[in-house]
Simulated assay, not measured.
Amino acid sequence: MKIRLVQDGVFSTVEDINEAINPPTNGFYWIDADVDDLIVLQPLFTLHDLAVEDCLSEEEQRPKIEIYEGHYFIVINSIRFDDEEIFLRALNMFLGKHYIITVTKQKINELRTVKPILWEQEVNRPDRFLYHLVDLVVDSYFSVGDRIEDKIEHLEEDIVLHTKKTHLNEIIGLRSEILWLKKVLGPQKDVIATLNKKDLRLIDDQLQKYFSDIYENAVKISETFDTFRDLMGNLREAYQSSVANRANDIMRVFTALTTIFMPLTIITGIYGMNFTNMPELDWSYGYYIVLGAMLCLGVGMFFLFKKKDWL
């Protein structure tokens, strides 16, 4: 657990948690905690039992905001994409009048990148800290969306040029990730809408207007992932069409080869008949003449098919 006194964007480390119970003369306290630290924090800051239970739960938490006496409990999801799978990490926050407590189970990059912004903006209130942190989390969805779009474009190009069976697994896997993420974006958008529109006494009225920008970004993200969902459907159709075209090409080659060898089979069939009186059997060069005729016939038919673009 790390306790920081933030005054005009400047951080000061606090060793004793009891100092954070009372409001400072200037600034606010930021307590960056693990779930195990809630045992200590809950009685000191009178955190609601249900909110603490949500933080301790092993089940995946949906984004939400709960209004309790003296503090708000807010859950949003940070996102990460490693080119194979999308990961969402819950960021639990307790917003009080003079403090904000962030509780996470894994490391979240936004908690690190928010520090220089606090210093640059000379942040002196916990609600402004909340605004900048939520803004960073929402912006991270744009970067992940760009990487997903690049992956879809690369996959589409690869399918057109070199269709493989593994492409279908990639399409199904990525589409499942996008659909799963869409279910999360709805509640998260609702949380930001609440921060934007609802009368919340712990958030300054002037600051609430800035949450409207974050809400617009959240709407854009949701629409972007709607587009991704449709693109994945188109990509699956392109894969199936490519596989069908490839099968047609293979069948066309097999049909052409069968057609080429059919007259040769007829010729060999004729000379495989066991008749005594066959004039060609007495020719000195009959065998070579027949082989040459078969070769010329096969090559001639091959070039004929190529000219007609059947091969």
Results as ranks from 00 to 15, higher is better:
S57F: 10
Y99N: 08
G70H: 10
R112P: 00
I79G: 03
E66G: 11
I74T: 09
E59C: 00
T104L: 07
V114N: 07
Q61M: 13
E59D: 14
K64H: 08
H98E: 00
K64E: 03
S78T: 05
Q61T: 09
D82S: 09
E53H: 12
Q106P: 00
R89L: 04
H98P: 01
I100Q: 03
L111C: 05
H71I: 05
V103Y: 08
I108L: 13
Y68C: 14
C55N: 09
L95V: 03
I76K: 07
E84Y: 09
L95M: 07
E58W: 02
R89D: 14
M93F: 13
D83P: 01
L91T: 05
Y68S: 12
S78Y: 00
Y68D: 13
I108D: 05
V114G: 04
E69G: 10
I74H: 01
N109I: 12
Q106M: 09
R112H: 11
E60C: 00
D82A: 07
I67N: 13
E84M: 07
A90R: 12
I65C: 02
L91S: 02
R89A: 01
F94Q: 10
E69M: 04
Y99E: 09
G70W: 11
I74V: 15
P63Y: 02
E85V: 13
D83G: 01
N109L: 13
R62K: 14
D54T: 08
L111H: 06
L56N: 11
R80E: 15
